[in-house]
């Protein structure tokens, strides 16, 4: 091995990793396009479909607004964070499992598969989210401006980082164990119902609020409501908790990945 300065090594590593991630990203992108056209359209339409179905439930109960916010906007604002977490738990964390053959190339590290799919999936959710919120703005002319942009930005950023941490952490163990993968798939099924997506947390009794507030998606959704609609945060909702949760998941994710990086390669 020739001796190099750390800077050179880092820059070279960055270059290689960037091109690997980009190549994997393009592969993801092509796979999405080449696969059934319907699949791509469906993944773009899915959040909107959920929003319409869940809103209909409220509308049949005679509610057109929740806390002064039109029901479609209320659910749409919470559906997108949920979608981000769902692709994190599902698709992104399966990236290594589904790209095992590519790991034979020495330049391709398992984490690159996570990164590439992370970028691809988050982009997809962002596009569908932009369509959804933009559609609500154009068609229904809802007021989509936020009351507190810094808080909104920070919450979204934390949600994205948190999703990265969760994806890598789950991905490492999902790759190692088939039964863990099944368990995660099963356990994440009721996420829609325990994430305060189609109801405000404040309608839950206090003891229930306490338990639900452990769920980071609930934290994100409620914080977004605070930032977007100017609501008062319920008792157990705090940015500090979300920061801490994000820090811990990222920490565990990278430690788990680093400890298992050769095990992942062997498979």
């Amino acid at each position: 091995m020739r001796s190099t300065s750390a800077t050179d090594q880092l820059l070279r590593g960055l270059k290689v990793q960037r091109s690997v991630v980009f190549a994997l990203f393009m592969k993801e992108y092509r796979a999405k396009l080449a696969g059934s056209q319907f699949g791509l359209i469906w993944s773009l339409m899915e959040p909107a479909t959920y929003v319409i179905v869940l809103s209909t439930i409220w509308l049949t109960l005679g509610r057109t607004q929740i806390g002064g916010v039109p029901i479609y906007l209320f659910i749409a604002a919470a559906m997108l964070p949920l979608k981000v977490y769902q692709v994190g738990i599902g698709n992104i964390s399966s990236a290594v499992r589904q790209n095992l053959n590519l790991l034979d190339y020495p330049n391709v590290k398992p984490i690159d598969a996570f990164y590439a799919r992370y970028v691809a999936e988050i982009m997809l959710v962002s596009i569908s989210g932009a369509c959804l919120i933009g559609g609500l703005y154009w068609v229904a002319e809802y007021d989509i401006s936020a009351r507190d942009y810094p808080l909104l930005l920070l919450t979204v950023l934390l949600a994205l980082l948190n999703t990265l941490g969760i994806s890598i952490l789950l991905g490492v163990y999902k790759t190692r164990s088939e039964s863990f993968q099944r368990a995660v798939t099963l356990a994440s099924q009721p996420l829609l119902f325990v994430s305060a997506v189609f109801y405000p947390l404040s309608i839950i009794p206090l003891s229930g609020q306490y338990w639900l507030s452990w769920n980071p998606v609930v934290q994100v959704n409620e914080l977004i409501r605070v930032a977007m609609f100017g609501w008062t945060a319920p008792k157990d909702i705090s940015l500090e908790y979300l920061c801490l949760f994000t820090a811990i998941t990222l920490f565990l994710a990278y430690v788990a990945y680093f400890a298992n990086r050769f095990t992942l390669l062997k498979r």
Binding site: A6, G13, Q17, A247, L250, F251, Y254
Partner: peptide
């Protein structure tokens, strides 16, 4: 505690980048 975790994460991210070289 939080700094420690972030420091570990940052170091590992760097280490992973370096492994690509």
């Amino acid at each position: 505690m939080i700094s420690l975790m972030l420091y570990v994460v940052a170091s590992l991210v760097m280490a992973i980048i370096r492994e690509h070289a």
